[in-house]
């Protein structure tokens, strides 16, 4: 830095911005890379449909099984849409 930069102001510290940006984009890219669906998901989905169909009439498309990863946490989400009650 020269005496001139004292008048013009310090250069902006940008390394921390770089680190933050990298951590965000890489978390995103890594999740796309490793988190391919575990192979039991389709089987789980079929069996869930079988069990639920015993009690309620549902279409296979009304049951969705999803696995999400956030950092070290894995969330298995099962979404079942029940048909509207026939009154």
């Amino acid at each position: 830095m020269s005496w001139l930069s004292l008048f013009l102001g310090e250069k902006k510290q940008t390394a921390s911005i770089a680190k933050d940006r990298l951590q965000i984009i890489l978390a995103h890219e890594r999740s796309g890379r490793h988190a391919s669906e575990p192979d039991y998901l389709p089987q789980l989905q079929r069996e869930l449909i079988a069990v639920i169909s015993k009690y309620v009439h549902v279409n296979p498309g009304d049951i969705r099984v999803n696995l999400e990863r956030q950092d070290n946490l894995e969330v298995l989400e099962v979404k079942i849409e029940l048909p509207e009650k026939q009154r």
Binding site: Q13, T14, A15, S16, A18, K19, L22, Q23
Partner: peptide
């Protein structure tokens, strides 16, 4: 440049 905060430090790179 690392000390001036203008370049990723080796610690930053290792953390990532």
């Amino acid at each position: 440049r690392v000390q001036e905060g203008q370049m990723l430090s080796l610690q930053d790179i290792q953390d990532i």
